[in-house]
Design a protein around this nucleic acid. Sequence first.
DNA 1: CAGTGGTCTAGACCACTCA
DNA 2: GAGTGGTCTAGACCACTGT
Lengths: 261, 261
Amino acid sequence: MTTSTPRPRASLGDYRAIARALRDEITAGRYRPGDQIPSERALAAEHGAARNTAREAIAELRREGLVIAKHGRGVFVRDRPRWMRFGRRRYSAAMRSSSELGPFGAEAIAQGRAPHVDSTITRAEAAPDVATRLGIEPGAAIVRRENWYFADGEPVQVGITFAPWHIVEDTPLADSADMGPEGIYGQFSARGHVITYIREEISARMPSREEAERMQIPDGVPVIDLWHTGIDAARLPFEVTHFVMRADSTALDYDMPVEEQ
Amino acid sequence: MTTSTPRPRASLGDYRAIARALRDEITAGRYRPGDQIPSERALAAEHGAARNTAREAIAELRREGLVIAKHGRGVFVRDRPRWMRFGRRRYSAAMRSSSELGPFGAEAIAQGRAPHVDSTITRAEAAPDVATRLGIEPGAAIVRRENWYFADGEPVQVGITFAPWHIVEDTPLADSADMGPEGIYGQFSARGHVITYIREEISARMPSREEAERMQIPDGVPVIDLWHTGIDAARLPFEVTHFVMRADSTALDYDMPVEEQ
DNA sequence: CAGTGGTCTAGACCACTCA
DNA sequence: GAGTGGTCTAGACCACTGT
């Protein structure tokens, strides 16, 4: 386990050179989306380097989101899925009445993907994050509706909706996944809260390990972290939803007037 | 250079266990933002593992954005900076007239950070991305204004603004960094284009290596990729800006009515 | 089964920081 | 100069995938 010969510096052989060579071949189209790139052992031999050095080059491309490794199979150029776009129109009355699918389902269908939603509904107490946005006291009773959104069986976003209990009491909002033909905003509307304004607070970050596992997010893919607040005609917030979305399959698209109102 | 003894599997010694132990200590507050965590060599000794194994554990925390390595100094729990928030108000007339700093400068000052902008202005031809959004032919003459925005000397975002040459011709927009007291939208306004609506297309991704180097973005930090289109009262786009922002120091905050107009 | 990526060892030298 | 992270070697065994 001792070493003696001063290992010859590989000609250009550091991992950055290997990574750059691969990156160039990918961006030049020499390897196309879905293609397999050479194995770690092949790259090492080709560049006269140790396998770990080739591996480090691949790790860099993974961090950049360019390739994806599949255990026992190989490393492949990432095949970017088509994007699902969401914006303010998903909250419009026209959207509500024109589709029984809800905005997620409609967008998925438009992209040729099969939508599916899993819901878990519980009663809870408002955390500070939620209470501040709803304008209620921390600890106040709320409903918590956790929805997982799938496209072609793959989870692409999760949204957790919170609303004051006194609004949802004795309505399907409190305990049912079935929101009827007008969707969740139809239910709020029936309780006197017509969604009129929205506030969207957007940031991006890397997923936690738990999020990466539950949403099957590969290396090098961040998430969009979005707090959405639904506001009624009286300018009062009545509903808050915290979305976490895979950034490689989701984009947001808003248009709006610049001035107030 | 050969090995013989079947290396004893470290008790729990795989890198995930080391990473989890560190992650737990960080989230529990045992290590606080800015604190240094044990060195790779110390972690390896503590867990009876090779240094590379401890190093892999640290690599995982770096990918998650939890820690940041400083060459020759150590590995530190990341200290999240205060966030700069941008929304539709940065385009309002009130914002234009109330500040000589522009929206970036105003937000930076509000966050207690010193703003600074570097500009490079050239004449160019419209790429397809730009031409589509401006509603002009690809290859048409445009001005290209590249702005780097710094807070406390750190680059936090870059925005490249494109506008048709026939609009900017013979105005400071075509060749000057100085936009006067009303800023860039004051200049467009003087040419008959009052910013009335905006369209914001938002996604997130990992930075390219070049972006990471130029913006000094550490591991585990994504960027927000934002295409902004300025639209005048006649509903015609007159300006497009492509922003790339460090996601760990920037958030977007929009409020808007749900229905058209 | 052969081939792939995943993990690990026990060293080495280099580049950087700081006292 | 001592200590740190950055890079690298030349092996090893494991887990997984395909034929």
